[in-house]
């Protein structure tokens, strides 16, 4: 089962990321991890949080554009070659990764076109899929 990942549109302006985290703090939401992707004038912030709906409502109220998407979250052991195992599993199955990032607790969040198939393959290989 995939996790719900919260995405926020941010203009490339001073203090915008801080504003997002301020809102999450106010809502008492724990931030488990995030990544940013930037274009010239704006960026996308992807967040894994303890309460997606609450965070989204608060951010929307503050005027942010948000989106919720599914992603796979897997725990990887903290030792050499572990990420490679994940990547090999997917590339052997011809599944291309759209984006991938690490969050707290040596967990990896990744997005692929065929979510269910990828998840099944990873489970078969013995990876632990996180549910939240």
């Amino acid at each position: 089962m995939p996790i719900k990942q919260l995405t926020v549109f941010l203009e490339n302006k001073l203090g915008r990321l801080a504003e997002v985290t301020r809102i999450l703090k106010k809502e008492n939401v724990n931030l488990q991890g995030f990544s940013t992707t930037e274009a010239r004038d704006y960026g996308i912030l992807r967040l894994v949080v303890s309460d997606v709906e609450k965070s989204r409502a608060a951010l929307k109220k503050a005027g942010f554009t948000t989106h919720v998407a599914d992603a796979i979250c897997i725990r990887v052991e903290d030792r050499p070659g572990e990420l490679l195992n994940v990547l090999d599993t997917l590339s052997d199955a011809k599944i291309n990764i759209d984006y991938i990032y690490v969050i707290a607790g040596t967990r990896v969040v990744l997005s692929v076109p065929e979510l269910d198939r990828a998840e099944k393959l990873l489970i078969e290989k013995g990876f632990f899929i996180c549910r939240d």
């Binding site: 274009a39 704006y42 996308i44 554009t65 948000t66 989106h67 998407a69 992603a71 997005s111």
Partner: peptide
């Protein structure tokens, strides 16, 4: 132009 939820997703290339 403002980014509304109608055009926004978690994919950067969709925006581009």
């Amino acid at each position: 132009v403002e980014v509304s939820e109608n055009i926004f997703s978690e994919k950067m290339n969709a925006l581009e």
